[in-house]
Design a protein around this nucleic acid. Structure first.
Lengths: 110, 110
DNA sequence: GCTATACGCAACCTAATTGTTGCACGTTTG
DNA sequence: CAAACGTGCAACAATTAGGTTGCGTATAGC
């Protein structure tokens, strides 16, 4: 499996796709608030099974949005901000070009 | 159809999901570079049919990432940056909390 | 050693996504 | 008016995503 780079169109789309699920966003929020957590811990409050959460973590892990460290019989998952920053950079760039377009429009009207 | 707000978990996930496709990212890039474009124009260079592009535009439109204006027999699609900024805000917030966590870790080590 | 815990993997089901083709309808244009 | 253009909608097939259940394996604790 050749993992696509974080800034290519495919890699970027994969990052956004991984972010495109309410449960995964909730997982990210919890990891952001509480630090590294295990699958069982993340599954406690959820309304789906542990395996569902585990699948979501696998998705996030394949998108390089989280990393996992095994510690005894537990596996702790943690945020991995690199891809988040790549996604952020894309959105910032689009917003910047949008502002440029607005500026040009403004100049044309004057 | 009750449209979810842009900052709710569902609305945010819907925004990211709409961004999570290479063709839709390509459409956004073209709209960003060339301004408002029609379906036919966007379909010319693509390797899929015009209807496929039209469906992607519908997806982007339902996610409020683009808006459409009918002009004669053409329909021009343009970027709508509000949701992009909401998505951006989420990523920035996650990154900020990540930095806070690093700072705390650093202080603990000292 | 034995039991309970934590986890991943595989099979299966259902629903959603992505793409295609064909058609209908309004708008230009000759 | 008639032909061509631009578009959207419906039906269909193929793939993917999200979820469940059951099972196997390794670690922790009594």
């Amino acid at each position: 499996m050749t993992a696509p780079g974080p800034s290519s169109a495919e890699g970027l789309a994969a990052t956004f796709a991984a972010l495109g699920d309410p449960r995964r966003l909730a997982i990210i929020s919890r990891l952001q608030d509480e630090g590294a957590l295990s699958v069982s811990c993340l599954s406690e409050g959820a309304d789906v099974s542990r395996q569902a959460i585990s699948k979501h973590l696998k998705t996030l892990s394949e998108a390089r949005l989280v990393s996992s460290v095994k510690s005894g019989r537990e596996t702790r998952y943690n945020l991995e901000p690199a891809r988040l920053e790549a996604a952020n950079a894309f959105l910032v760039q689009v917003a910047a070009k949008w502002d440029q377009a607005l500026q040009r429009l403004k100049l044309q009207l004057e």
